[in-house]
Lab assay of single mutants.
Amino acid sequence: NKFNKEMRNAYWEILHLPNLNEEQKNAFIQSLYDDPSQSANLLAEAKKLNDAQA
């Protein structure tokens, strides 16, 4: 299933973003579980936030 793979990839990438705190990571990961079809968008948002907090 495409979403499972996308979701897993997004999950791991978000988990390893160095500039997000636990609360931010948890919020993105919760959103992933709530709507796996948004994995790519959530990952993009997480990366933007990560870069902004660098």
Score class of each variant (00 low, 15 high):
Glu13Phe: 13
Ala40His: 13
Leu17Ala: 07
Pro18Gly: 09
Ile14Ala: 01
Ile29Leu: 07
Gln30Arg: 13
Leu15Thr: 10
Ala52Gly: 15
Ala27Tyr: 11
Ala40Ser: 11
Glu23Lys: 12
Tyr11Asn: 02
Ala40Ile: 14
Ser37Ile: 07
Tyr11Arg: 10
Leu49Asp: 08
Glu45Ser: 12
Lys25Pro: 00
Lys25Met: 12
Asn4Ser: 02
Leu17Gln: 08
Asp35Glu: 09
Asn21Leu: 07
Gln38Thr: 14
Pro18Ile: 10
Glu13Ile: 14
Leu20Tyr: 00
Ile29Ser: 14
Lys47Trp: 08
Lys5Val: 06
His16Gly: 12
Ile29Lys: 11
Leu32Phe: 02
Leu42Ile: 14
Leu20Met: 05
Gln24Met: 15
Ala40Phe: 12
Leu20Arg: 00
Glu23Pro: 12
Gln38Tyr: 09
Trp12Lys: 15
Ser37Ala: 09
Tyr33Glu: 05
Lys48Ile: 07
Ala27Gly: 08
Ala54Met: 14
Leu43His: 04
Ser39Met: 12
Asn1Tyr: 01
Leu32His: 00
Ala27Thr: 10
Lys2Val: 07
Glu22Asn: 14
Asn19Trp: 13
Ala10Trp: 02
Asn1Asp: 15
Lys5Trp: 06
Asn41His: 14
Trp12Val: 10
Gln24Asn: 04
Leu15Lys: 15
Glu6Asn: 02
Gln53Trp: 07
Gln38Phe: 04
Ser37Trp: 06
Asn4Arg: 01
Ser31Asn: 08
Asn41Tyr: 09
Tyr11His: 09
Ile29Asn: 01
Ile14Ser: 00
Asn9Tyr: 15
Leu49Met: 12
Ala52Tyr: 13
Asn1Thr: 06
Lys2Ala: 06
Asn41Ile: 08
Leu32Ser: 01
Asn50Leu: 01
Gln38Ala: 11
Met7His: 05
Gln53Leu: 12
Leu43Ile: 04
Lys5Gly: 05
Pro36Gly: 14
Lys5Met: 02
Ala52Pro: 05
Ala46Gln: 00
Ile14Gly: 00
Lys48Glu: 12
Leu20Asn: 00
Asp35Tyr: 07
Asn9Met: 15
Leu42Met: 08
Asn50Phe: 01
Ala40Pro: 05
Asp34Arg: 08
Asn9Phe: 13
Gln38Met: 14
Met7Asp: 06
Asn9Asp: 14
Ala44Leu: 10
Ser37Leu: 03
Ala44Thr: 14
Pro36Glu: 03
Asp35Trp: 06
Leu17Met: 15
Leu43Gln: 05
Tyr33Asp: 02
Phe28Gln: 01
Ala10Asn: 03
Pro18Lys: 11
His16Val: 05
Met7Tyr: 13
Ser31Met: 08
Asp34Asn: 06
Ala27Phe: 11
Pro18Met: 09
Lys25Asn: 01
Asn21Ala: 10
Leu43Val: 08
Leu43Gly: 03
Ala46Met: 01
Gln24Leu: 08
Lys5Ser: 04
Ser37Pro: 06
Ala44Lys: 14
Gln30Trp: 13
Leu42Tyr: 10
Ile14Tyr: 00
Glu13Asn: 15
Leu15Trp: 05
Tyr33Gly: 02
Glu6Leu: 04
Asn21Gln: 13
Glu22Phe: 14
Gln38Pro: 02
Ala44Trp: 06
Gln24Phe: 06
Asp35Asn: 13
Tyr33Thr: 05
Ala10Ser: 04
Ala52Leu: 12
Asn50Ile: 01
Leu49Trp: 08
Glu13Leu: 11
Glu45Ile: 10
Phe3Ile: 11
Ala54Ile: 06
Pro18Gln: 12
Asp34Leu: 13
Trp12Tyr: 11
Gln24His: 08
Pro36Thr: 04
Gln53Glu: 11
Asn4Val: 06
Asp35His: 09
Gln38Val: 10
Asp35Lys: 07
Asp34Trp: 08
Asn1Gln: 03
Leu32Pro: 00
Pro36Val: 04
Leu49Arg: 09
Glu22Val: 10
Pro18Phe: 13
His16Asn: 06
Leu43Glu: 03
Met7Phe: 14
Ser37Arg: 06
Glu23His: 11
Gln53Arg: 02
Arg8Phe: 15
Leu49Thr: 15
Ala52Ile: 11
Asn4Trp: 10
Asn9Ile: 08
Glu45Pro: 00
Lys2Ile: 07
Asn19Phe: 14
Leu42Asp: 01
Glu23Leu: 08
Glu22Ala: 13
Glu45Leu: 08
Ser39Asn: 03
Phe28Ile: 06
Ala40Tyr: 15
Ala44Met: 14
Leu15Met: 11
Asn9Ser: 07
Phe28Asp: 00
Tyr33Ser: 03
